[in-house]
Simulated scan of single mutants.
Amino acid sequence: MSTPNISFEFFPPQSLEASFRLWETVRVLAPLQPKFVSVTYGAGGTTRKLTHEAVTTIGKNYGVNVAAHLTCVNASKEETMEIVNSYAEAGVTELVALRGDPPKGQENFTAHKDGFQTSIDLIEALAKDGRFNIRCGAYPEPHPESADTLADVRWLKRKVEAGATSAITQFFFEADTFFRFRDLCEKEGVNAKIIPGILPIQSWKGTKRFAQSCGTKIPAHLEEAFEAAVRDDREQLLATALCTELCDTLIQGGVEDLQFYTLNRPNMTRDVCHALGITPRASLEDVA
């Protein structure tokens, strides 16, 4: 089995306790030498400043390539490009360009009257700027606002044509979901790398809630397995085994890159990576 390229997603802390958790997560996972790590925006752009601080601090102190999330929410084009400039000045060379979720309390996305209307508009502006490698989002199961997966694939193709060089998928539970999506993308002429997004299940209850909100189908056999595992106090053991199996199946199917949604909880992601043969590399300082 070949060893995949890995990347990790973190979210910016909004409290002192959360801050300690983020830095512990980075400390545990950075030695696995990810190809890049990314830092999210909160819903509605609420963590814009915190995201900037986390991105610049991680890049400066841990020597990893950091991609900053950027959305269209609650900002004019001018404000968004000011943020872009501040990232460039901080040495950031990668952005994850997304439309973004509606602010808390709003069901539907409404673009800022002077802002970017869609992720495609944002990607076009970033591509024209020319200073960044641009990644985007992808949906192997229909986006809640989409008609079907084919519509999502065609929208992804437009994002790639606008300047995105790779796409990171929403999480999914079964490898075949990704393989079907990848095949459809190939059929529709999407010529960018598609990186599967992997969510280690830290809490089955929380994961189910997350899945329902973003349109991810929950297989019946998983529901039954986790019910038994929770009852027998082996939920983490089952989650680690399932995540490892999912990643292994994807690798066997030709996947070369995996993105882990860490939720700022590093241990299960680390354990899965170890099971896949990805282990920390000691620096000369460590062994001197």
Score class of each variant (00 low, 15 high):
R281I: 15
T149Y: 04
T71K: 08
G59H: 06
F109Q: 07
K205M: 08
S7L: 07
H112F: 03
Q202S: 11
C243N: 03
T47I: 11
V255M: 07
E124N: 03
T177F: 13
N61H: 15
F20I: 05
E223V: 10
N264E: 02
P13Y: 10
V96Q: 04
G44P: 04
Q106T: 10
V39P: 00
P200C: 08
D176H: 13
T244A: 14
F171H: 05
E285N: 11
S203A: 09
I120S: 02
E186T: 14
G206P: 02
N65G: 04
E89I: 13
A138F: 04
W23Y: 13
V272N: 01
P34H: 04
V153M: 06
C243E: 02
A90K: 13
D148L: 09
G215T: 05
I251H: 06
T249Y: 01
L70P: 03
T71W: 09
P13F: 08
P280A: 07
D148W: 14
K49C: 05
N133V: 10
P12D: 07
Q33R: 14
T47R: 01
N61C: 12
S7T: 07
D129W: 05
E188F: 13
G42L: 06
C243F: 01
Y41N: 07
D114R: 05
N74T: 08
Y41P: 00
T3K: 15
E224D: 10
M1Q: 08
N108S: 13
T240N: 11
G253R: 12
D121A: 03
S15I: 08
Y139F: 13
G254Y: 10
A192W: 06
E79R: 11
G206K: 15
Q33K: 14
D232L: 05
K205D: 10
D121L: 00
H274D: 12
P13D: 09
S15K: 09
G215I: 04
A18S: 11
E9V: 00
S76V: 12
W204Y: 14
T56V: 12
N264P: 06
C247M: 07
T177G: 12
G197N: 06
P4D: 15
T269Q: 03
V190S: 02
L258K: 00
T249C: 07
S166P: 05
Y261R: 04
T249R: 13
L29K: 03
E53W: 09
I123D: 00
S166Q: 13
T57G: 13
M268D: 03
F179I: 15
L29Y: 01
Q252H: 12
D129H: 13
D232V: 01
D183P: 04
G59Q: 14
L242G: 05
